[in-house]
């Protein structure tokens, strides 16, 4: 984790001096120096492009209230939103939502069809729910339920494992219960599939 932190810091210096592309305000750059060019995600910072604005808002609230408490959130996001006023938060959420998202395509493609089957139907015998029921047929999300399609494999995997380890994100969320029934094989298959969804 230390090494990734250092990498991020180096990237940050690099990105903030070199790739200030046209039309992006300072407020946006405050986020994209970690979340990558065009907010398409970079290393441990997930893609924000195309994410549901209500979900982005709900997570900013969770970071501010320290409800989302996994190590990367503590280390990077608690500080990043501490001084963010509600008006700017909303503007940023709406802005990121309008950027067309690019899929990460970094999962194991041989597991994708198994992953898709679990995503659509769940495994009712093992009390694994269908993700489709909440996240939609194309993993596009709705309201404060996030788009999952095309997020990076390792980010998705980390999130699903962390719920199983007792970390929280959004108060009252069904996700800790969803994740507690997923084994390593199901997580591999689901996150592989999702990384390819566009």
């Amino acid at each position: 984790m230390k090494r990734i932190g250092l990498k991020l810091a180096i990237l940050a210096i690099f990105a903030s001096t070199v790739s200030a592309w046209a039309g992006e305000s300072a407020a946006v750059r405050n986020c994209t120096w970690c979340h990558g060019a065009g907010a398409q995600g970079y290393t441990v910072a997930p893609r924000l492009a195309g994410q549901r604005p209500q979900y982005i808002m709900s997570q900013i609230r969770s970071f501010r209230e320290h409800a989302r408490n996994n190590p990367f959130s503590r280390q990077y996001m608690w500080g990043a939103v501490a001084a963010l006023d509600p008006y700017t938060a909303r503007e940023l959420a709406n802005y990121f939502a309008t950027i067309a998202p690019k899929p990460a395509n970094d999962g194991d493609s041989t597991l994708a069809s198994r992953g898709r089957a679990i995503y659509m139907e769940g495994i009712p015998e093992a009390n694994i729910v269908s993700c489709y029921a909440c996240h939609g047929p194309n993993a596009e999300g709705v309201r404060d339920i996030p788009r999952l399609g095309g997020l990076a494999y390792s980010y998705l995997k980390g999130r699903l494992e962390q719920w199983g380890q007792g970390y929280h994100s959004t108060p009252g969320s069904p996700m800790p219960m969803v994740a507690s029934h997923l084994g390593p094989e199901e997580i591999e298959a689901l996150t592989s599939y999702l990384s390819f969804v566009r």
Binding site: V129, C134, V142, G172, M177
Partner: peptide
């Protein structure tokens, strides 16, 4: 209850 709400009160997902 994962889908129908943690106290059975209902829930809004995609469905």
């Amino acid at each position: 209850k994962t889908c129908h709400g943690l106290s059975g009160q209902g829930y809004l997902g995609y469905f």
